[in-house]
């Protein structure tokens, strides 16, 4: 085991996969000479060269579209979208392209593309650069949507995303890059579409992922001081969504809170709560609570922005309500 930040974990995964497989190329805005606007690909251009680390114009439609096409033609492209907010410019290629092509042509073509996109709020970037629209992308069959919350999972899941023959949207959180954690030495892969128990507990189940996993872990430490043991389920993948560990946990704790950074309406929490009601209704001793972002476009002002984003106190309050 070694201590890595999520930035280092993602960077290592990319580097190792490029060393392992010549078919892996990177394309996107400022991925080359600049080294990545979040410094994930620093040093890649010098080591792998301009053929494999390709700077593109600021044109998201053709970035994702070309990545789809190259994937169909046998490469394993990793397209970087500087922020997930720009994915809306490439929405057609993600939704009508990547997610459909295998099915729509009767299974003839594969689209083994990875679209890395940086999401999340909290950096005073204003309404168009701060969204957490993960649930939007999780809506589409054919696409895999992965959003890790630890360095271990960031590395293992990105390797899996590059190796799978299916298209994957890999969502990184902009404020998690410095988060540190234990990562195994050497090559390892984490399975896509498998949830994970990140903390064991017997009193309440917190179901979450990405940045909110880290907040939930901190909330759980506070709850422990009050004698409440929270079990934390990290979804890690939104599609395919693995409800197994969450259902097993809720059947023991009988109480659940879902924590997401995106908006509440039609969100990840809404889906998870529905599944809990469908499959574990008789086990619930209290209505499941959702913690989510206030339903506003995120404002620039620091205090207002933090007011809208889910905080540890919101998680604590929700847990106390279901107990």
């Amino acid at each position: 085991m070694t201590q890595l930040t999520i930035r280092e974990a993602i960077s290592q995964a990319l580097w190792e996969e490029m060393e392992r497989d010549q078919r892996v190329i990177i394309l996107g805005e400022e991925v080359g000479l600049w080294g990545g606007t979040y410094a994930v690909t620093r040093g890649f251009y010098d080591h792998f060269g301009p053929e494999r680390v390709r700077d593109t114009p600021i044109a998201e439609g053709v970035i994702v579209g070309a990545a789809n096409g190259a994937a169909m033609a046998g490469l394993r492209p990793v397209a970087e979208l500087m922020t997930i907010n720009f994915a809306f410019l490439a929405m057609d290629q993600i939704v009508n392209g990547a997610a459909k092509i295998h099915y729509m042509f009767g299974g003839q073509f594969k689209v083994p593309v990875v679209i890395r996109a940086v999401g999340g709020g909290g950096r005073q970037l204003g309404a168009t650069h701060s969204q957490t629209p993960d649930a939007v992308f999780a809506h589409f069959p054919g696409l895999k949507v992965v959003a890790p919350g630890t360095p271990h999972d960031a590395k293992g899941l990105l390797k899996a995303a590059i190796r799978t023959d299916d298209p994957v949207l890999f969502i990184e959180h902009a404020t998690l890059y410095q988060t540190k954690g234990e990562v195994p030495e050497g090559d390892f892969v984490e399975p896509i579409g498998v949830s994970k128990v990140q903390r064991q507990g017997s009193d309440v189940t917190i179901i979450t992922y990405s940045k909110m996993l880290q907040l939930s872990l901190q909330a759980a430490e506070q709850l422990a001081l009050e004698g409440v043991q929270a079990e934390i389920i990290d979804l890690r993948s939104l599609r395919p969504l693995d409800m197994g560990p969450a259902l097993a946990s809720v059947k023991r704790t009988n109480r659940a809170v879902v924590v997401e950074e995106g908006w509440r309406s039609f969100g990840v929490g809404a889906e998870v709560v529905s599944r809990l009601h469908e499959e574990a209704f008789d086990y619930l001793d209290a209505p499941v609570k959702r913690v989510a972002q206030d339903e506003v476009p995120l404002p620039y002002n620091r205090e207002l922005e933090q007011l809208a984003l889910p905080q540890i106190d919101d998680i604590l309050a929700a847990v106390r309500e279901v107990l």
């Binding site: 439609g61 053709v62 579209g65 070309a66 096409g69 169909m72 033609a73 490469l75 057609d92 042509f105």
Partner: peptide, 25 residues
Amino acid sequence: FWGGYAIVGGHLPLAVGMALADQYR
């Protein structure tokens, strides 16, 4: 034959990627 595509213009970026793959190899 890599397909007919029903979103106007949507297959042009795919063609860019396919040509890139051939050039790369």
